[in-house]
């Protein structure tokens, strides 16, 4: 049993799912997990981390940490790793983890492995799996260097466990050190007022089958009912029925949600390249030969204008 510190990633005031996946894995494997929360106004998230299995939550909550600042974040995480007497530090391999992980490892003089898809702790050593040679092979690495080890893990590699209601055992970290030489002044995000495609657990996308902007509106309630992000195929975007930011596919966004609804999308290879990594794919199309059915887990052959209302009704029924 090892002592592992998870560096939590907070976005828009909430802990991101990949962090919870890391805690889920540690809980499943029976390791002692603690977490460190860094940011401004993040204290409230401590309970979420506790609910997912963090025995202790170190909090560095300070206005100077509102935006990502390399040296201050590294200092806070290193401080937490010391106090927790962690054997390992885990981060998700997001932009956040990619920036923080290597710097933290250097600060701690630790062994480091990036972009792992599995981590096994055995005694003093840790074994990780990671894709290598441009994903052509999978590499098994054994981190043997004594002392703390740092890894970043790909999102989706582990599953989050159901949350329990728990209040956290919080330890407050000292005011942030570091000279703040690199300062992120502002993070600007385009506000679409919708669920972001990249983060969404469920995505509903529409294709040429909707036949026009009215069709786009017609399917929208399905996305709303599911709390899903709403996307589109290239044909819909080219026709000007939806903005380019919502295009899923080779030249648009690549999404890997838990559930992907393809409504009226025939499934050109350019589109499949953007969504075939989804965990569960449900397709509605009137053409039984549409290529989308070759990647779909569930397929409904039928007129989307008849199928979608039934789907919406069933989902509403199920929810109530």
């Amino acid at each position: 049993m090892s002592n592992v510190l998870v560096v939590a990633e907070v976005k828009g005031g909430a802990v991101r799912k990949p962090t919870l996946e890391l805690l889920g894995k540690l809980k499943q494997d029976g390791h002692t997990a603690s977490a460190v929360l860094i940011g401004s106004g993040v204290q409230a998230q401590a309970d979420t981390l506790a609910g997912h299995g963090a025995a202790k939550v170190y909090v560095a909550d300070d206005a100077a940490l509102a935006n990502y600042a390399q040296d201050r974040y590294v200092a806070a995480a290193a401080d937490a790793a010391g106090q927790a007497q962690a054997d390992m530090v885990w981060l998700s391999a997001s932009e956040f983890g990619k920036a923080l992980g290597p710097a933290l490892a250097a600060r701690l003089g630790a062994a480091f492995a990036a972009d792992c898809t599995d981590v096994t702790i055995s005694g003093d050593a840790a074994e990780v799996m990671r894709p290598a040679m441009a994903t052509k092979v999978r590499q098994k690495l054994r981190l043997k260097k004594p002392g703390v080890k740092v890894v970043t893990v790909r999102s989706g590699a582990f599953d989050a466990q159901p949350a329990e209601a728990k209040s956290a055992d919080v330890a407050t970290l000292a005011a942030p050190a570091g000279d703040g030489r690199i300062v992120v002044k502002e993070v600007v995000q385009e506000d679409t007022g919708r669920v972001d495609l990249g983060d969404a657990a469920t995505v509903v996308s529409v294709g040429r089958g909707v036949r026009g902007p009215e069709g786009v509106e017609f399917v929208q309630p399905l996305a709303d009912a599911l709390g899903a992000a709403y996307g589109a195929s290239r044909a819909v975007v080219d026709s000007g029925w939806m903005p380019f930011e919502l295009q899923v596919g080779q030249t648009g966004r690549v999404v890997t949600p838990d559930v992907y609804f393809a409504i009226g999308i025939s499934g050109a290879i350019q589109h499949l390249a953007g969504m075939s990594g989804s965990k569960l794919i449900i397709a509605v199309n009137k053409d039984p030969d549409a290529p989308i059915f070759s990647v779909a887990d569930y397929g409904i052959v039928g007129d989307l204008f008849k199928v979608v209302p039934v789907l919406i009704e069933e989902i509403k029924k199920h929810k109530s």
Binding site: A134, K136, Q250, V254, I269, Q270, L272, A273
Partner: peptide
């Protein structure tokens, strides 16, 4: 993504 697909799996879609 197309270049990456060609680099990694020698096809544009990275299949």
């Amino acid at each position: 993504p197309t270049f990456r697909g060609l680099e990694q799996n020698a096809n544009p879609w990275n299949i």
